[in-house]
Design a protein around this nucleic acid. Structure first.
Lengths: 225, 225
DNA sequence: AGGGATCCATGATTGGATCCCA
DNA sequence: TGGGATCCAATCATGGATCCCT
């Protein structure tokens, strides 16, 4: 199959995404000449990558948005029967040695500046190939949403700069979490300790809590129930 | 010991309650010449009844407020280390055969018209005698609080009148629940079924969800954390 | 039987761990 | 290694059951 070209603008991207609504993952995979794994246990990112290809995401350009030319990030949302997100959403890795960048210029804020949310059924009772794609939502943070993100980010960033990374758990942050992000817990990265010394620690990622992405969907769609 | 006389007015009641703040249940029990049980498993109402006696509640007058002369109900609130209620609060039994009374004249509304809330430490790690009494709060429902109670009460009452009591679970009601209230699940009372016939069912009580009583405390005290 | 409530088994949540691909 | 994420054991929440007293 010839790859899907990048969308020229947001309108084209959104139109493509809307055409996916109602489609099963099996159907979409077939149209892209892809095999469907039995389950996601050993293929956790499969759904996201399938949809990237279906929408013409720019591959292989790390540290750039999925749709580089038009500055849009793609995020699939695994949802339950009520349409509510069942998992947190990974945003980006946590810089552990960065100079003191501020919120306005933060990696996190840039990643979330413009996001195409695409809900996908994720109940384990539905075979992977039969799970359906939901209604796309092109989103930027509303002022109150950005305020929440900013507050959490600034609190977490300050603690990292103070060398307190090891004391940060996934319980911190009202809408934004810091959690391990690696192949396993033996992975190590350099960071800064309480006395300014270099230490080794697990790599971390920023994640949006499911309650936050649920609120985003809730605000834009009338959910059933 | 000579029993504590009923308080003459709310001011006297509140003053007495405030004097209890910081006191341990062991100290209070000793001053009233009472034995402290090892735990509450077989003495679930012990804390409430101890504090009734300490404050001069009118005993034995069923269907009347604890402080009958001044129209105040006493409720102890079992709280965790953060001061948050750990259990729902029983209010009154659910009338199963009553004529169609309305909210204004409901038993529930009258019970909650004026309540003296008294938080008490309830963590199982603290021996019963060492648990301390917190700061008393004399409360009447604010307009928004009453609106929530009323909405739940009216929905639940309508379902009971329609004979749908058996379909009501503790999941119904945003702030108010209906739950079993009996010595055990073999207790039976008369009620009305879907076709208007008399049926036998478990006795039920109205309970306030812990999130609701937590909001009441939150509104009046700055909680730590 | 109503009023004082808490207990506790079970379901729901989630924090930390992990998996594949390029 | 960063980006695509989900897994799942351990914890939390709570609905239904229960206990004592008068």
């Amino acid at each position: 199959m010839t790859p899907v070209p990048p969308p020229r603008d947001e309108t084209e991207l959104l139109a493509r995404a809307r055409r996916l609504a109602g489609l099963s993952l099996g159907d979409l995979a077939r149209s892209l000449d892809e095999a469907v794994p039995a389950d996601l246990r050993r293929h956790k990112g499969w759904v996201g990558q399938l949809i990237e290809r279906a929408l013409g995401a720019t591959a292989n350009s790390l540290a750039a948005p999925d749709f580089e030319a038009i500055g849009v990030e793609l995020k699939t949302l695994p949802v339950d029967a009520r349409g509510l997100p069942r998992e947190s959403t990974y945003v980006c890795t946590v810089p552990l040695e960065s100079a003191g960048e501020d919120w306005e210029h933060s990696w996190l804020r840039r990643k979330l500046a413009r996001v195409l949310w695409l809900p996908v059924q994720a109940e384990k009772t539905i075979p992977l190939a039969e799970r359906r794609i939901g209604s796309a939502l092109l989103w930027s943070p509303a002022p109150d949403e950005e305020a929440l993100l900013r507050r959490d980010w600034e609190e977490l960033t300050e603690r990292i700069l103070l060398g307190e990374l090891e004391q940060i758990s996934a319980r911190h942050g009202e809408v934004l979490q810091i959690r391990p992000k690696a192949a396993d817990s033996r992975a190590l990265r350099h960071a800064v300790g309480v006395d300014g010394e270099r230490i080794l620690t697990n790599p971390r990622g920023y994640y949006l809590r499911a309650a936050f992405t649920a609120a985003i969907l809730q605000r834009h769609f009338v959910l059933p129930g």
